[in-house]
Amino acid sequence: MHQLEADALTSPRAPSFIVTLYGDIVAPRGGVLWIGTLIECCAAHGLSEGLVRTAVSRLVSSGRLEGERIGRKSYYRLTDMAEEEFEAAARVLYAPPPQPTGWLVTLSEAETVSTDWLPIGPKAFIAPRRNDVLRPNAAVLSCDTVAGIGALRDFAAQAWPLAEVGAKYDAFLSVFEPILAHVWEAGAPPGPEALALRLQLVHAYRHAALVDPRLPEAALPEGWPGGRARALFVRGYLALTHAADQHIGLTFHDSRGRLATATAATELREDRLRRECLA
Rank of each mutant, 00 (worst) to 15 (best):
A147Y: 15
A147P: 11
A147I: 06
A147E: 15
A147Q: 15
G148Y: 06
I149K: 03
I149L: 11
I149G: 04
G150E: 05
G150T: 08
G150V: 08
A151V: 06
L152W: 12
L152V: 12
L152M: 13
R153Q: 15
R153M: 15
D154S: 10
D154M: 11
D154L: 09
F155R: 01
F155D: 02
F155I: 02
F155P: 01
A156M: 01
A156G: 05
A156P: 02
A157D: 07
Q158E: 08
Q158K: 14
A159P: 02
A159F: 10
W160G: 05
W160I: 00
W160N: 07
P161A: 00
L162S: 07
L162T: 00
A163F: 09
A163P: 14
A163H: 14
E164S: 10
E164F: 05
E164I: 03
V165S: 06
V165Y: 00
V165I: 05
A167R: 15
A167L: 15
A167Q: 14
A167V: 15
A167M: 15
K168A: 14
K168T: 04
Y169A: 07
Y169W: 00
Y169E: 01
Y169D: 06
Y169K: 02
D170A: 15
D170E: 15
A171V: 01
F172D: 01
L173Y: 01
L173W: 01
L173V: 01
S174N: 04
S174P: 02
S174Q: 13
V175F: 06
V175R: 10
V175M: 10
V175T: 02
E177G: 04
E177T: 03
E177I: 05
P178F: 04
P178T: 11
P178A: 11
P178S: 09
I179N: 07
I179C: 02
I179V: 13
L180S: 11
L180H: 05
L180M: 11
A181D: 10
A181L: 10
H182P: 02
V183K: 07
E185L: 14
A186Q: 12
A186R: 15
